[in-house]
């Protein structure tokens, strides 16, 4: 299956986290609850499209696009 990144999700869409493309940032993201297998939902983007707010592990996490594109989803 083609994997795409969380940064490509549209508002309201969600995906299941499959993995990460960057080792160092993945550790921080995992600590914040972005665990492979869990659902991540795109809430809304800031007015200029970046950063983006996501729903993960029951709270709102905001990520820059560069950070969100490190998270791969199914």
């Amino acid at each position: 299956m083609d994997s795409k990144s969380v940064a490509e999700l549209k508002p309201g869409e969600s995906g299941i986290i499959a993995g990460f493309t960057d080792g160092v940032i993945s550790l921080k993201l995992m600590e914040m609850g972005c665990i492979p297998g869990s659902t991540i939902k795109m809430n809304f983007a800031a007015p200029f499209g970046d950063p983006i707010s996501y729903d993960i592990a029951g709270y709102n996490l905001s990520l820059r696009i560069s950070e969100a594109s490190c998270i791969l989803i199914n």
């Binding site: 950063p51 709102n60 996490l61 905001s62």
Partner: peptide, 10 residues
Amino acid sequence: DKGYFIMELP
């Protein structure tokens, strides 16, 4: 600097 933005919106 590998700084992050990663921030909670409480």
